[in-house]
Design a protein around this nucleic acid. Sequence first.
DNA 1: AATTAATGACACCAAAAGGTGTTATTTGAA
DNA 2: TTCAAATAACACCTTTTGGTGTCATTAATT
Lengths: 107, 107
Amino acid sequence: MVYESRHDVFQAISDPSRRSLLNLLVGKEMSITGITECFPINRTAVNKHLHILSNAGLVKSQKVGRETRYTLKPEPLIELQNWLSFFEQYWDKKLLALKKFIEEDND
Amino acid sequence: MVYESRHDVFQAISDPSRRSLLNLLVGKEMSITGITECFPINRTAVNKHLHILSNAGLVKSQKVGRETRYTLKPEPLIELQNWLSFFEQYWDKKLLALKKFIEEDND
DNA sequence: AATTAATGACACCAAAAGGTGTTATTTGAA
DNA sequence: TTCAAATAACACCTTTTGGTGTCATTAATT
């Protein structure tokens, strides 16, 4: 394999092009050339992004004839959600405090 | 300013050292040297990470005497949560399907 | 069988990332 | 008023990133 690496989900979604790729593949199965037509970068670049997403488990590829079709696999994003949930309480605390303040202000 | 840039939240949290920094600053206010003692990298490197986090709005600095103290500002993570919520339905769909399958299996 | 479409696999490049160490400056303490 | 602590500001280095173009290979098509 060529584009092998240890990309995790955090690194995978850090690039805006890759986030767009994920959005594009929602509910659809698309070939590499099909995907490339939706972006301002060339096929090789798109392919690299797809491999990075694939390494992170965010997309899966399937060969259909001479095409390689990609589909979204959002499950690894759960790790991101778990990471977020730890911090959630902190901004929730603030929002709750704000809410409380507003409510008290209405008395 | 030196470490100026247009780092967004996605890019800011893509680095494991920076994620550790956020965890370290939860509920605490720490000086740069204090923070550096908790990491295997030197002060200059820590400072760069802090500036990147600061540019993303994830930390705030405050000068106290000759120290620069940093605190966590988790609010920008809301953007990440919003981004995630779009994809949430897709893995939820699968989990719900699995749940349904298990429940039907119990009949 | 010959041609074309869709990729895979490279080589190559400029810029950004993540580190290092050094020097200058500001501030608290002795 | 010296001296040491804390950090800002650089210069510098290596690896990774995100992109390009080219050539080879494999599968449809005519």
